Simulated assay, not measured.
Amino acid sequence: MSNYSTDIETAELGENGLSKKAGWITVYHVNQYTGEYQSASMEYLMLGVGLPAHSYPDKPELPPAGQALRRTVDGKSWEFLPDYRGQTVYSTEMRQEQTVTQFGELPDNVTPLKPESEFDTWDGKKWVTDTQAQQAAESHAAQQAAQQALTSRLAVANARILTLSDALDLDMATDEEKAALTKWKTYRVMLNRIDVSTAPDIDWPPVPQK
């Protein structure tokens, strides 16, 4: 029998988790906080020595794409969990977009389904557009735009009427300016009769040419 051996001594663990035979062993390391599998390494165990912290001797089966590999909470086996990390999800309460940073099932208050508008609400399975709120908002926006347009048009009319009135007050107005003043005053009256609540269906009066 030879005095030499080319075999690598393999460690053997006892039921207490300590080495009952010194040697090398492959161990599988996990994240100490999440239990997610990190890496494998060869470790030499002296007699009566245990594995490094957060390491296990049983080789895990690799998970399919879209799954994360984790040690179970009790530390007795490996398990697969959904892995949505890097994907975009949306809050079912505020519609806010966010990126998933942790593996595991998605929280109940997020969904990978994207809302179509700011008026969408989550019904538990899908986004539903609140058409009444949407119409109210659109109507409000249209009224605001109409009010701004009305204010702008009145400013133009007031400025033109003021200039023409000065000429009339000073008895300097031409017949053409007198006719223009009447048109601009008529235009201003018509503007003041505009009801912006009917926006966007507003029939704006034509602007006088002079």
Score class of each variant (00 low, 15 high):
Y4P: 05
Y4H: 13
T6L: 15
E12A: 14
L13N: 01
G14Y: 09
G14T: 13
G14M: 09
N16M: 10
G17E: 01
K20Q: 08
K20A: 00
W24I: 09
W24L: 13
I25R: 07
V27R: 00
V30A: 07
N31F: 04
N31I: 01
Q32T: 06
Y33L: 14
E36T: 00
Y37I: 00
S41M: 13
S41R: 14
S41A: 11
M42D: 08
M42G: 10
L45F: 06
L45G: 00
L47H: 04
G48A: 03
V49H: 14
V49M: 15
L51F: 05
P52S: 08
H54I: 02
H54R: 05
S55I: 02
D58W: 13
E61I: 14
L62H: 03
L62G: 00
L62P: 02
A65Y: 02
A65F: 04
G66P: 09
Q67D: 11
L69Q: 00
L69W: 00
R71I: 06
V73S: 14
V73E: 14
D74N: 14
G75E: 02
W78E: 00
F80Q: 01
F80D: 00
F80W: 09
P82T: 04
P82S: 07
G86H: 03
G86D: 04
Q87D: 04
Y90F: 15
S91T: 06
T92K: 03
E93M: 07
M94R: 10
M94D: 13
Q96S: 13
Q98V: 08
T99Q: 09
T99C: 11
T99L: 06
V100N: 04
V100C: 03
Q102I: 01
Q102N: 07
F103W: 05
N109P: 02
V110A: 07
V110Q: 05
T111A: 02
L113E: 15
L113N: 08
K114S: 11
E118Y: 12
F119M: 09
D120W: 03
T121I: 15
W122L: 11
W122G: 05
G124A: 07
K125G: 09
K125D: 09
K125T: 10
K125L: 14
K126L: 11
W127I: 03
V128Q: 04
Q132N: 08
Q134P: 04
A137F: 09
A137M: 10
S139H: 14
H140D: 15
H140K: 15
A146C: 10
A146S: 07
A149T: 10
L150K: 02
L154F: 02
A155F: 06
V156T: 12
R160N: 13
T163R: 14
S165M: 09
D166V: 02
L168W: 05
L168I: 04
D169S: 11
L170W: 06
L170Y: 08
D171T: 10
A173M: 03
T174S: 12
E176D: 13
A180W: 01
L181W: 01
L181M: 09
K185Y: 05
Y187N: 01
R188G: 08
M190W: 04
M190L: 11
N192C: 11
I194T: 11
D195P: 07
D195Q: 09
V196E: 08
S197K: 15
A199R: 07
P200I: 04
D201R: 06
D201Q: 12
I202F: 05
I202D: 03
W204Q: 06
P205Y: 06
P206Y: 01
V207D: 02
V207N: 04
K210N: 15
K210D: 15
